Amino acid sequence: MISIFLQAAAPDTMMPTMIMMGLMFVGFYFLMIRPQMKKAKQEKGFQAALKVGSRVVTTSGMHGRIAQIMEDGVVIETLSGKLKFEKAAISREFTQQRFPDSTEEKK
């Protein structure tokens, strides 16, 4: 009886497997890759739109105002003085949570 169940018919083609792999790739693209690319694009646009005097929050939680913008980073004025950070260290998400009036989100 068990031998009957173990004798499954071999598939004639690899088409169902290829279709399933393709559907998995499409699913990964729309569920994981595309949202991550959209978020990275928004972050890059936010960093390009920074202006002197804008209040920001870094990814490490440091709050301050932008005192100077340079090619390789920004100088942020905090209560403890002026500190230089990379532009990538400024978080769009944290800044918009803390200072929603100082950042404009384009839709």
Rank of each mutant, 00 (worst) to 15 (best):
T103Q: 08
G22C: 09
P35E: 07
R34K: 15
S54C: 12
A89H: 08
A89Y: 07
H63W: 06
K51P: 01
E105A: 06
T58F: 04
T95D: 01
T78V: 14
E71V: 12
R65P: 08
P100F: 05
S80Y: 13
F46H: 01
M32F: 05
K38M: 02
A67Y: 06
D101C: 01
R55N: 10
M15C: 07
M37T: 02
Y29C: 00
V75L: 13
Q7W: 07
K41V: 00
V57L: 07
F25G: 00
F99R: 08
G64P: 03
Y29H: 00
K82D: 05
G73W: 02
I69E: 07
K82Y: 05
E93V: 10
L50R: 03
K84V: 09
I19T: 01
M37E: 02
Q96A: 15
A9C: 09
P35G: 02
K84P: 06
G61E: 15
I69G: 11
K38I: 03
T13A: 06
M70Q: 11
G53P: 04
L79P: 03
S91F: 04
S54E: 13
E43A: 10
P35Y: 00
A88N: 15
G45W: 14
A67E: 13
K39R: 15
G73E: 04
L23A: 13
A48I: 08
E104A: 10
I66K: 05
R98W: 07
Q97T: 10
D101E: 06
M18D: 02
Q96T: 13
M21Y: 01
V75S: 10
R98Y: 11
E86N: 06
A88P: 08
V52H: 14
I76P: 00
L83C: 05
F94R: 15
M62H: 09
S60R: 15
S91N: 08
A88Y: 11
F28N: 06
F46D: 04
Q47A: 03
L79G: 12
M18K: 13
T103Y: 14
F25R: 01
M15P: 01
A49E: 13
R55K: 06
I33L: 00
R55S: 13
D101N: 07
E93Q: 14
A8S: 04
G81Y: 06
